[in-house]
Write a protein that binds this DNA or RNA. Structure first.
Lengths: 122, 122
DNA sequence: TGAACGGGTTACAAAAAAGTAACCTTCTTG
DNA sequence: CAAGAAGGTTACTTTTTTGTAACCCGTTCA
């Protein structure tokens, strides 16, 4: 299989949708809030740059993961929430998280180091 | 929740392990071959740079996803295969793929455009 | 009138990821 | 002896992603 073919494969496409430094935490908040205002999101993820947060949200909107809801008037009120597609991701992300917790890298790493130390001392 | 806390959360950790331009296709091949030599892998993913492929493989090894097997002698024979941790990722990646195929972005996008065009013409 | 708020944009800088090409080592074969 | 293969490394460039800071616009409140 060539990369051309693979590039548009579901696995690649979905992982690209999830790649971005702040996307996991954005998703986390959206899964726990069902709707959240831009400024609020910016406030609770303190280290992200406004521009980057906006970029991420735009990408996620273009990917169909989230829906942007603008209520003009005052105050401007722009809310983001998960789309159906985004919601459908929930169980998958949970199982990813569970997987990571089960096979915590630290333990693996510690074991590896212990073994390597043991080998050297023999 | 602050980013400091979230940074080491399972979701973030696992998505970072999967992020890298060539990791999905590397995983794909490992899932379909159960063992593969470095050069062979490099040959079947024609556009990846040797250095980058190596970087990706090192990262995946450090993350405990794959196991590197070196048989010195001639020819050098370095094989890579999935670890148990890596194998456990299989069903999750399949469901990610299925998710992407079900909610194919193109269709969503096409539908959106069609609707917007229809609205304009009314 | 002017400061503040929400949700942006813009121009630019810094950092990280990916790519290129040459080189190395050990062995083998012509 | 020269060339070639496997699996790397090194030095360097390009591209992509993040980050910083200033600015804009419409509206409200002091």
């Amino acid at each position: 299989m060539k990369y051309n073919e693979f590039e548009h494969c579901g696995l690649n496409v979905s992982l690209q949708m999830l790649s971005g430094k702040w996307k996991p935490i954005i998703l986390y908040h959206l899964f726990h809030n069902q709707q959240i205002r831009f400024t609020e999101l910016w406030r609770i993820i303190p280290k992200v740059a406004k521009k980057v947060l906006l970029d991420h949200l735009r990408q996620m909107e273009n990917d169909g993961l989230i829906i942007r809801n603008e209520r003009s008037g005052f105050p401007p009120e722009v809310c983001y929430r998960l789309s159906e597609k985004g919601k459908a991701l929930g169980p998958i992300l949970s199982s990813l998280e569970a997987w990571a917790n089960e096979h915590a890298a630290r333990e693996v790493e510690a074991l590896r180091k212990a073994n390597s130390a043991r080998r050297k001392s023999e």
